[in-house]
Computed example of a mutant assay.
Amino acid sequence: MPYQRGRTALAGKALVEGAVKIVYSRIYAPLRKEVYHTLAELNIAIKVALEAHNSQPLRGRNYSRRLQFEEVERQALAPLPALRYEFKRQHQATVMKNGHVCLGIDKHYYSVPYRFIGRKVKLLYSRTNVEVYYHYERIAMHRRIKSPYSYTTEKDHLASTHRFMTEWTPDKFLEWAASIHEDVRLYILKILDRKQHPEQAYRSCIGILSLARKAGNERLASACRRALGYGVYNYKTIQQILENKMDSYEDSLFADELPMPSHDNIRGENYYK
Rank of each mutant, 00 (worst) to 15 (best):
Y85A: 05
F69Q: 06
L123E: 07
E41A: 15
Q75R: 13
T38Q: 13
E86W: 05
E131R: 00
L39I: 15
G118H: 09
K47L: 01
V20L: 13
E51S: 08
E73D: 12
V23M: 12
A19Y: 04
V23E: 14
H142A: 01
G104E: 11
E51D: 08
A82N: 11
E34I: 05
S150D: 11
K13Y: 08
Y36M: 09
L80K: 09
G104D: 12
D106S: 14
R119H: 13
L58G: 09
E73A: 12
Y24I: 04
T94Q: 15
R115L: 13
N98A: 12
L67Y: 07
K120H: 11
G60S: 08
G118P: 03
L77P: 11
P113W: 03
R119E: 13
G104T: 15
L80R: 09
H135Q: 06
V16S: 00
I139F: 01
Y28I: 08
G99P: 03
Q92Y: 13
T128V: 06
N43G: 08
Y109K: 00
A19T: 11
Y109G: 01
Q56V: 05
L124M: 07
L77I: 01
N98D: 04
G99K: 04
A140D: 02
Q92A: 12
A14T: 07
T94E: 08
H108V: 03
Y85L: 00
E34M: 06
L31N: 07
R84T: 13
S64H: 11
P113M: 00
L42I: 10
R84A: 14
L83A: 01
A11N: 08
Q90F: 04
S147L: 14
A82Y: 12
H91F: 10
L39H: 14
L42F: 02
G18T: 11
M96G: 00
V121M: 01
F87K: 00
V132L: 07
Y149K: 06
I22T: 01
P113Q: 05
E41Q: 04
L15E: 03
V20S: 11
K88A: 02
Q56T: 10
L80N: 09
I139S: 02
T8C: 09
G12M: 05
I139N: 01
V72Q: 10
G12A: 00
V112W: 03
D106E: 04
E51N: 05
Y149R: 12
D106Q: 10
H135C: 05
E86G: 02
E70F: 12
N98K: 03
Y36K: 14
A82P: 14
V101W: 00
Y133L: 05
G18Q: 09
Q92C: 15
Y85F: 02
A76R: 10
V35E: 04
N43S: 10
A40N: 11
P81A: 01
L124C: 06
R26P: 02
E34C: 03
S126A: 14
A9V: 14
K97C: 08
P30N: 10
K88W: 02
Y134P: 13
L31V: 06
K146T: 12
Y109C: 02
Y149T: 06
A9I: 13
Y134W: 08
H37S: 15
R84C: 15
I44S: 07
K21N: 07
Q4R: 09
R138I: 06
E70C: 14
M96Q: 06
L50T: 13
T128K: 07
Y110A: 03
Q68K: 12
L39P: 10
R7S: 05
Y85S: 00
A93C: 14
Y36V: 15
R26I: 05
Y134E: 13
I117R: 07
G104Y: 09
H100P: 07
